[in-house]
Design a protein around this nucleic acid. Structure first.
Length: 652
RNA sequence: GCGUUCAUAGCUCAGUAGGAUAGAGCGGCGGUUUCCUAAACCGCAGGCCGCAGGUUCGAAUCCUGCUGGACGCACCA
């Protein structure tokens, strides 16, 4: 697997890029047949509605059945039409049932309840669609008539800081969305917008100049830089903690609440009451280092040659730190352009915004007023420094010129919602109004007690440590359950299962929910987990091996598929729902829909597995049919897990 | 104060452009292995969908209010 590649240089002085417009779009002919079953029924029902204005709504009201006893799909639009037309919904449904043509997929729908139309696919149709899907290179997924160009902005860590658990969501969700969009046939650019120009470099620079262990730096610069960052951070920390507490206590004193002030102050003091002299000294010492570190940052930004040179020296090591994690997570980017890359463009961005009267001066700063929020968006501070909003605007312009994207996804923490509202509004005013900007927000990572895991409070569990631990737990299970595998194989299985568990725990949840980080749950190797899916996959491979056949063999020479047993039919139906699931997942940008689909698929396969013997089937034709079902399931599991960034193993 | 968001089984969570009897995993209880990997399968118990109104044939889903939590609100990114 290729690891993340950096196609750009890391000079902060890198200049304006070459335009690289997107490849010419091809308009593909619409396929005459569709493998998107849901879409098929939607179109057929729409055609049966006399009033054209009602068609889209009626089509949308075609859904997978809520209960198997209602069939496979249901059309619920009759009630809505009846309301508008002030007619009896059952009469409407009757008319639709008469008019609709579901050939050859299904018979006439059945009327039920207040006006539901229930559809049941014919087995011979499912059977032939399954055979088609098994043979099809694209698993029945249609290429879009007009592929979109989509920039996915995700991961975006601050370099020089070790990645911790808080970075995992953006990285994993973004990677999954990128893979899914690409699999559907869109043109995807994966862009890692690195924080490579921020205050953390001031801290490292200060650490380098004051705390460096020379030998350690010589032998392992990556490790030493990480140590320096941590050391400086812990020395600065008291300044923030104490100042915050001071301020709160002071406010309370001012409000005449001396008792409460005392309580607050006691948090940073011993049981004998606050030792103000001591606290003050600590705070002052920490604040001094903090200020000096800030000065180092300022010097870097203003072009100080020593700091620039050191920055250039640190960067490769910082990137190496990230590289290792990305490689392990099987994440790669098309471009990694950090804040430093855009730095030379910022002055021009502000000038342009001012010239177009989008930005104005206010209280000494340059700001853009927005409808989206009360507070304006700062593009230049009163001290002349630019902000991350300026960088984001420069980035938008650069991406627009280089790729001309239809859509830009920002896979970022939901707490930045206001910022993106402002940013998108300004960008559209600025002239980028054709681009569909989307903040793909996700919930906060919480600790065990339900409180947000805070980046700056230290003690955040390192990402590498999490992965190690997951792999270790997986190794224990592998060793216990599969002693027949070689140690090398067990190690490889443990790596794939462990990492998969961590990813799946995150991706199987709705991204907008807050996410309670639970190591124990993540590493459970049963239930709704990646392991369950990987296990189902491994069992299929075992059957194929024993049958001395393969996916490829069953694809080139596909036997007739027959769905006589209910478990076979249930599995077959689920297989056919892949295209509609992926469609929905990318419309809503929700990988958990893919995860849910795969869990249901594995679930139905497991039932099939226990109820329908494959190798010991009564007749050769049944055996062949079941092998084909196994091969189709196998392809889907591997493909679907790959969309989640999760790998499979042949044995486990 | 303004704004955003959340509240569903003991726990962790799905489900919201309104649809039929609200689902899953874990945990609990009970079954299944002479048979393709038991990391599995099957079953049972468990709910005032935070509270109160409203909209309508129909509300976990939409509207209003309330309660409780999280987050954001001009020079950090």
């Amino acid at each position: 697997m290729p690891t993340s590649k950096s196609t750009e240089s890391y000079s902060p002085l890198a200049l304006t890029p070459k335009p690289e417009l997107r490849p010419p779009q091809q308009t593909l002919p619409d396929p005459t047949t569709t493998m998107n079953v849901l879409e098929f029924f939607r179109q057929r029902f729409a055609q049966a509605i006399a009033d054209e204005s009602q068609r889209p709504a009626f089509a949308d009201a075609v859904r997978p059945a809520t209960d198997p006893k209602f069939g496979d799909y249901q059309a619920n639009g009759s009630m809505a039409i009846a309301k508008a037309a002030k007619r009896n919904p059952r009469d409407i449904a009757n008319e639709v049932a008469e008019a609709v043509n579901l050939e050859p997929m299904a018979d006439k729908p059945e009327l039920a309840g207040p006006g539901f139309l229930n559809v049941r696919l014919r087995n011979n149709q499912i059977e032939s669609l399954l055979a088609d899907l098994l043979k099809d290179d694209r698993l029945g997924i249609e290429t879009p008539a007009i592929p979109k160009t989509v920039v996915v902005d995700y991961s975006s860590p601050n370099v020089a800081k070790p990645m911790h658990v808080g970075h995992i969501r953006s990285t994993i969700i973004g990677e999954s969305l990128a893979r899914t969009l690409a699999a559907l046939g869109h043109h995807v650019i994966r862009d890692n917008h690195l924080g490579d120009w921020g205050a953390q470099f001031g801290m490292i620079l200060w650490g380098y100049k004051n705390l460096l262990h020379n030998d350690a730096y010589e032998t392992d610069p990556v490790h030493e830089l990480a140590r320096l960052y941590k050391a400086v951070q812990s020395q600065i920390k008291p300044a923030e903690t104490y100042e915050e507490t001071y301020q709160k206590a002071f406010q309370l004193l001012k409000a005449g609440k001396a008792d409460e002030a005392e309580t607050v102050a006691s948090k940073i003091s011993g049981p004998d009451g606050p030792d103000w002299a001591d606290i003050q000294a600590q705070t002052a010492a920490a604040a001094l280092i903090r200020d000096q570190a800030r000065q180092e940052t300022a010097k870097l930004h203003s072009g100080d040659s020593e700091n620039r040179q050191l920055w250039g020296q640190f960067m490769p090591h910082c990137l190496k730190m990230l590289e290792d994690v990305y490689q392990r997570l099987d994440v790669r980017f098309d471009v990694q352009l950090g804040e430093s890359f855009y730095d030379p463009m910022l002055a021009d961005v502000v000038t342009d915004l001012q010239a177009k009267a989008i930005a104005t001066n206010s209280e000494g700063a340059t700001v853009c007023f927005c409808k989206a929020t009360k507070a304006p968006m700062l593009v230049r501070k009163s001290d002349g420094a630019f902000t991350y909003a300026t960088t984001d605007l420069a980035t938008i312009r650069y991406r627009a010129l280089r790729w001309n994207p239809d859509q830009v996804l920002y896979v970022v923490d939901h707490r930045q919602g206001d910022h993106f509202h402002q940013l998108f509004e300004t960008a559209k005013t600025w002239g980028f109004d054709k681009v569909d900007f989307r903040h793909v927000a996700f919930g906060t990572i919480l600790d065990q007690s339900g409180r947000p895991l805070k980046t700056r409070e230290g003690d955040a569990v390192g990402l590498a440590g999490i992965l190690d631990e997951a792999v270790q737990v997986a190794r224990g299970v592998v060793d216990e359950n599969s002693p027949e595998l070689s140690p090398q194989e067990r190690a490889q299985v443990a790596e794939i299962v462990g990492i998969g568990a961590v990813k799946y725990a995150d991706l199987s949840q709705n991204r907008s929910s807050d996410y309670k980080f639970d190591l124990h749950k993540m590493m459970a190797m049963n239930g709704n987990t990646a392991t369950y899916l990987q296990y189902a996959y491994a069992r299929i491979q075992s059957i194929l091996r024993k049958a001395e056949t393969s996916e490829d063999a069953l694809r080139t020479n596909t036997p007739p598929i027959s769905l006589a047993h209910p478990a076979e039919r249930a599995l077959g139906m689920q297989i056919l729902r892949l295209p509609e699931t992926l469609e929905q997942a990318t419309v809503e940008m929700k990988p958990n829909l893919v995860a849910e689909y795969l869990f249901e698929l594995a679930n139905r396969y497991s039932s099939f597995y226990s109820e329908c013997p494959v190798l010991r089937a009564d007749e050769p034709s049944i055996r062949q049919s079941r092998l084909a079902l196994c091969a189709a399931t196998s392809r889907l599991l591997r493909f679907g897990l790959n969309l989640l960034g999760i790998q499979v193993v042949e044995r486990m």
